[in-house]
Design a binder for these strands. Structure first.
Lengths: 108, 108
DNA sequence: AAAATATACCTTGACAGGCGAAGTATATGG
DNA sequence: CCATATACTTCGCCTGTCAAGGTATATTTT
């Protein structure tokens, strides 16, 4: 990972929700996907990822169920809920806004 | 303040360095300036601001001296150091990079 | 004259998120 | 049979933010 964690902090949840917008998935795969999408420049740490799942489920933004794999390790799948979809859009809006704000503030 | 702190987190130091790029200044004024620049949408909390000053000075990115006001409250002025200027440019680069990364990851 | 407000700085303790480290379990390739 | 890949989980530390409280001086209001 080459990007500072504090830059991503506050976006972890949105990144996960974004992935689930394209359909149910599970932890390991989501992390793989992030790594691929960024050309290996970024990946969530496992502890961070699974902590985020707990938090998002707690908040009602995602729900989970065990997959019925008959081979390999068991997988816990996650679905985004309607509240999660709404939250995702809200977060996107915040990103747009904060992006402009930060740009204003860090260019001297 | 209407913007989530976690969105700004990781940029506090850069915001301060950016301000000092335009010349020496002191805490209260910098915070005012941030508030004005963002139309009141964002302001650093005092504790956060002064913690950041300590951190940046510790790291050698800024240096401080007491102003010689003969009226009003005393002011501690801050200067950006050469190392701070370098760090500022590095941070700007990180911002460009992470901005692209986040954009990639949060748009489904 | 007293009280309120603005300027200006500082410290303490709590909290939340990220993450290193370690552990559990199954399947596959050498 | 052992290493590696897949897949999930928990514990405890670290760091940055911030609410709350404090100090001190000058101006404005009552």
């Amino acid at each position: 990972m080459s990007i500072a964690s504090d830059m991503i902090r506050g976006h972890t949840d949105t990144i996960i929700l974004a992935h689930l917008m394209s359909g149910d998935s599970y932890g390991y795969k989501i992390n793989r996907s992030i790594s691929e999408k960024t050309g290996g420049q970024y990946e969530l740490k496992e502890a961070t990822l699974y902590t985020a799942f707990r938090r998002l489920e707690q908040l009602g933004f995602i729900s989970s169920y065990w997959g019925d794999e008959n081979t390999g390790a068991r997988r816990r799948y996650y679905s985004i809920t309607p509240a999660g979809v709404q939250e995702y859009h809200r977060m996107l809006g915040e990103w747009e806004q904060s992006q402009r704000l930060i740009q204003t503030l860090i260019t001297s």
